[in-house]
């Protein structure tokens, strides 16, 4: 009997060893698959960047920046689009900053715990999920038609500032929330009022985080095409905007226009235009990262 028992357990042992090695093989395969999934994503980014660089770099020229749009690909430039994008940012940046930070300060410092505050929170998170083209419809009706601004820089800037508002609110709330309570209490203990504490302690302390969020939000706004198209941005403009009520075009709209043309030359300058817009985004993101690492206080 004893002999038989040992055989059984030996068999079991071998079976288990085999199963274990199978499980380890599975584990390795699974790890490989997951790594592959991650590598694929990064590979796509690399392919995209290389493709656009190789296609567009030969067409980057000074003319592209100082010329207006043209029917000939050789003369075509994006001066109007570049100026339009800068004008849009001049409108959208201060507006979305003030509104976003104001909302965040209200929600973090003043808002009582009630249904209105809860509604506000749900509202912000839902706004963040509204497709940008729907914001375009809002801008078309309210700013373009109802307020009579037309397809102007102002209408475009207002639309974009509402579009990126949730991003700034979320980032600012996070930054304000990170200001430690004891710093605020120290301010109160020195006799400061609530507003003085917010203006002199809370906002300065959270400013790096707020600015980082704002820059990231604006870099989203720069790349937005659909809402700008919907409110009526033109694809062919031969002048830079002269004031807030001028018609305009913007860089993504110009790139969209060139991409849609059948001639290959236009697609090449579209690639060159994309390089310029990606460089702008890269520059803005670098500033955001710089602010984050250089000025952010850790408590």
């Amino acid at each position: 009997m004893k002999f038989a028992d040992t055989t059984v357990s030996n068999e079991r042992y071998e079976e288990n060893t085999q199963r274990l090695s199978k499980r380890h093989i599975w584990n390795k395969a699974f790890k490989g698959i997951c790594f592959g999934a991650m590598a694929f994503s990064i590979l796509m980014l690399i392919v995209l960047l290389i493709r656009i660089l190789t296609q567009g770099i030969g067409f980057l020229s000074w003319d592209l920046i100082v010329n207006f749009a043209s029917r000939n690909a050789e003369d075509a430039g994006m001066l109007a689009a570049l100026a339009g994008t800068i004008w849009l940012m001049v409108v959208a940046a201060p507006l979305s900053f003030v509104l976003g930070v104001g909302t965040a300060v209200y929600m973090e410092e003043y808002a009582p715990v009630n249904r209105f505050t809860k509604l506000l929170q749900t509202n912000i998170s839902n706004l963040a999920g509204v497709p940008s083209v729907v914001f375009g419809l809002l801008g078309l009706t309210i700013f373009n038609r109802l307020l009579g601004l037309g397809a102007s820089v102002l209408a475009g800037g207002l639309t974009l500032s509402l579009l990126v508002l949730p991003i700034i609110v979320v980032a600012s709330r996070e930054a304000i929330n990170a200001v430690p309570t004891d710093v605020k209490q120290a301010s109160y203990a020195m006799g400061a009022t609530k507003w003085q504490t917010i203006f002199r302690i809370v906002i300065p302390t959270s400013l790096p985080g707020i600015l980082t969020g704002t820059i990231l939000a604006l870099s989203r706004a720069i790349g937005e095409t659909a809402p700008i198209l919907v409110i009526g941005a033109l694809t062919y403009v031969a002048s830079t905007p002269s004031d807030l009520f001028s018609n305009f075009t913007a860089m993504p709209v110009q790139i969209y226009d060139w991409t849609g043309r059948p001639q290959e030359e236009f697609q090449n300058i579209a690639a060159a235009g994309i390089i310029i817009i990606l460089l702008m985004l890269f520059f803005m993101n670098s500033i955001a990262v710089f602010i984050r690492t250089k000025f952010q206080k850790r408590f």
Partner: peptide, 19 residues
């Protein structure tokens, strides 16, 4: 991955159509 998420959609559109 954040960079990938930050690329404007028109750039992806261009990439889809021409590549």
């Amino acid at each position: 991955l954040e960079v990938l998420a930050g690329i404007p959609t028109i750039v992806y559109g261009f990439f889809a159509l021409t590549f």
